[in-house]
Amino acid sequence: MAYIDFISSVHKSTKRDYLKRVNEFSKAEAAEKAKKWGYDYWDGDRQVCYGGYHYDGRWKKVADEMVEHYQLKSGDRVLDVGCGKGFLLYEFTQSQPGLEVVGLDISDYAIKNAKPEIKPYLQKGHAKELPFEDNSFDLVVSVTTLHNLYCMEFFSALKEIQRVSKNSYVCVESYRNEQEKVNLLYWQVTCEMFCTPEEWEWWFDMAGYKGDHSLIFFE
């Protein structure tokens, strides 16, 4: 298992006002709305979650780097667990034409409002039980999704990703100090697992996860 950071540049490109997030809107109400995974989560008020999650090309660099690192070629299969509106998967198809892409997400709204070119390849499902055969994907990715699961679901999801993948990459949110912990708590609306890097490593080991991973921090 290797630590490879594909995501920090995207994460750090967003400006965040942590105090505004908790002072100007009820955190409990925001979380209740967000966890329905519908309009409010994706395209509603910024105080709830994304405030409008639209295609802007930010995932192109990530897809290019993953295609190069994992040496993906035409005919290879890529699965995105927690694919949302499918923007990263779309960039995979542009970076390496001929890739077979599949997206899985719990949100009906995200799939319905996915990028049109990629929508036919998306399906509803939960990370804890992937409806795919063993070793059926050349690469499985899950970006800023699995920390939204309860620990027993996270454990199952890691084992499932390991089961269906030849290569895999997981990115979750974390904190290294009290300031980053506070920032994460202020900003998040859907997290169920709050772990330090050492704790995440423990979970990866416990689940027998052998793929790659990275962490993002709210500095």
Score class of each variant (00 low, 15 high):
175 Y>P: 04
153 E>H: 11
174 S>E: 08
96 Q>M: 13
89 L>Q: 01
199 E>C: 10
131 P>W: 09
170 V>T: 08
142 S>F: 02
143 V>F: 10
130 L>Q: 11
180 E>D: 05
175 Y>G: 05
129 E>Q: 15
197 P>Y: 09
119 K>W: 00
156 S>W: 07
199 E>W: 12
193 M>C: 15
177 N>S: 07
127 A>P: 06
161 I>W: 08
154 F>D: 03
190 T>D: 14
165 S>A: 14
187 W>E: 14
85 K>A: 03
115 K>M: 11
106 I>V: 14
83 C>R: 00
118 I>R: 01
110 A>L: 00
100 E>N: 12
84 G>R: 00
121 Y>G: 06
102 V>M: 06
122 L>H: 00
195 C>W: 14
84 G>E: 01
152 M>G: 06
153 E>T: 05
127 A>C: 09
146 L>D: 07
146 L>W: 06
105 D>R: 00
174 S>D: 09
84 G>W: 01
120 P>D: 07
96 Q>R: 13
131 P>F: 10
133 E>G: 13
174 S>W: 06
150 Y>T: 14
120 P>E: 06
134 D>P: 07
180 E>W: 03
127 A>V: 07
126 H>V: 12
174 S>P: 07
191 C>R: 13
92 F>K: 04
91 E>A: 09
171 C>E: 12
167 N>Y: 10
113 N>F: 03
108 D>W: 00
180 E>Y: 04
145 T>S: 11
99 L>P: 04
185 L>Q: 12
90 Y>D: 03
150 Y>P: 09
86 G>Y: 00
101 V>T: 08
165 S>L: 05
116 P>I: 04
192 E>G: 02
100 E>K: 13
122 L>N: 01
145 T>D: 03
123 Q>M: 15
160 E>N: 10
188 Q>A: 07
94 Q>R: 13
154 F>P: 02
170 V>I: 15
164 V>L: 07
183 N>Y: 02
104 L>S: 01
165 S>H: 04
121 Y>V: 08
89 L>H: 01
121 Y>Q: 13
84 G>T: 02
109 Y>L: 00
84 G>M: 01
121 Y>K: 13
109 Y>T: 00
192 E>S: 11
83 C>Q: 01
147 H>D: 13
133 E>M: 11
95 S>W: 10
130 L>E: 10
125 G>P: 05
182 V>Y: 13
176 R>V: 08
190 T>A: 12
168 S>A: 13
121 Y>M: 12
168 S>I: 02
167 N>D: 12
131 P>S: 11
